[in-house]
Simulated assay, not measured.
Amino acid sequence: MSSLLVHLGSVLADVLAPSPTGRPGNGGYGGLNNPPPQAPDGLSVIAEQWISWAKWGCLLCGALGFLVCGAMMTVGRRNRSHLAGEGAAGIPWTIAGLSLGALAVPLAIEIMSASGSGG
C-alpha cells in the first residue's frame, strides 16, 4: 500500500512540476499538452453569429427589465410601496445581467488565458 502511495506521489509530482519553458502544460504524464482552443473548420463564423444573437437577446431582456422596473416603481408609488421597492430592487439585477452579458466573451477569454489555454 505504501509503495502505491509513493508511486502516486511521484506521478503527481511529475505532472505538477513546473515547465522548463515557463509555460503551463509541459507535457506532464504521458506527454499530454495543454493546447489553446481552436474552432473546428467553418464553425467559428457560426459560433460568432450565435454569440451575437445571444448578446442581442441579452440587450433586449435588459431593456425590458429596466422598463418593467420603471413600471413597477411607477405603479407602486401610491399605496403599493412594496411593489415600488421590488421595482427598485430589480435595477441592480438588471445592471448585473447586462454587465455579465457584455463581459461574457472577454471574461471567458481571460479565464482561458490565465489557465494557459487561451489564445
Results as ranks from 00 to 15, higher is better:
residue 4 L to P: 05
residue 5 L to Q: 14
residue 6 V to N: 10
residue 7 H to S: 13
residue 8 L to R: 01
residue 11 V to P: 00
residue 13 A to G: 09
residue 14 D to Y: 07
residue 15 V to E: 14
residue 15 V to R: 11
residue 18 P to M: 05
residue 21 T to A: 15
residue 22 G to I: 02
residue 22 G to T: 01
residue 23 R to K: 13
residue 25 G to T: 00
residue 26 N to V: 00
residue 27 G to L: 02
residue 28 G to N: 04
residue 28 G to F: 05
residue 29 Y to D: 05
residue 29 Y to C: 07
residue 30 G to N: 02
residue 30 G to L: 05
residue 31 G to V: 03
residue 32 L to I: 13
residue 33 N to G: 09
residue 33 N to W: 00
residue 34 N to F: 13
residue 34 N to Y: 09
residue 34 N to W: 11
residue 34 N to A: 12
residue 34 N to Q: 09
residue 35 P to D: 06
residue 37 P to W: 06
residue 37 P to H: 09
residue 38 Q to F: 04
residue 39 A to P: 10
residue 41 D to M: 01
residue 41 D to N: 09
residue 43 L to P: 04
residue 44 S to F: 03
residue 46 I to E: 08
residue 46 I to D: 06
residue 46 I to Q: 10
residue 46 I to A: 11
residue 47 A to D: 08
residue 47 A to V: 13
residue 48 E to I: 02
residue 48 E to W: 08
residue 49 Q to H: 14
residue 50 W to Q: 03
residue 52 S to V: 09
residue 52 S to R: 14
residue 52 S to D: 11
residue 54 A to K: 03
residue 56 W to E: 05
residue 56 W to P: 02
residue 56 W to G: 15
residue 56 W to Y: 10
residue 57 G to E: 02
residue 57 G to I: 05
residue 58 C to V: 12
residue 58 C to S: 15
residue 59 L to V: 08
residue 59 L to T: 12
residue 59 L to R: 08
residue 60 L to N: 04
residue 61 C to A: 14
residue 64 L to C: 10
residue 65 G to L: 05
residue 65 G to M: 08
residue 66 F to P: 00
residue 66 F to Y: 15
residue 67 L to C: 05
residue 67 L to V: 07
residue 69 C to F: 03
residue 69 C to N: 14
residue 69 C to I: 01
residue 70 G to S: 10
residue 70 G to Q: 04
residue 72 M to C: 13
residue 72 M to R: 05
residue 74 T to G: 02
residue 75 V to F: 03
residue 76 G to M: 03
residue 78 R to W: 11
residue 78 R to A: 02
residue 79 N to G: 04
residue 81 S to C: 01
residue 83 L to G: 01
residue 83 L to K: 11
residue 84 A to E: 13
residue 85 G to Q: 07
residue 90 G to M: 10
residue 90 G to R: 06
residue 92 P to I: 03
residue 92 P to R: 07
residue 93 W to A: 15
residue 93 W to Q: 13
residue 94 T to K: 03
residue 95 I to W: 10
residue 95 I to H: 04
residue 96 A to K: 01
residue 98 L to W: 15
residue 99 S to L: 15
residue 100 L to N: 14
residue 103 L to F: 15
residue 104 A to C: 08
residue 106 P to K: 06
residue 108 A to K: 03
residue 108 A to D: 04
residue 109 I to P: 00
residue 109 I to Y: 09
residue 110 E to C: 11
residue 110 E to V: 13
residue 111 I to E: 05
residue 111 I to M: 14
residue 113 S to A: 11
residue 114 A to Y: 07
residue 114 A to S: 12
residue 115 S to V: 10
residue 116 G to M: 04
residue 116 G to I: 02
residue 117 S to K: 08
residue 118 G to I: 04
residue 118 G to H: 12
residue 119 G to N: 10
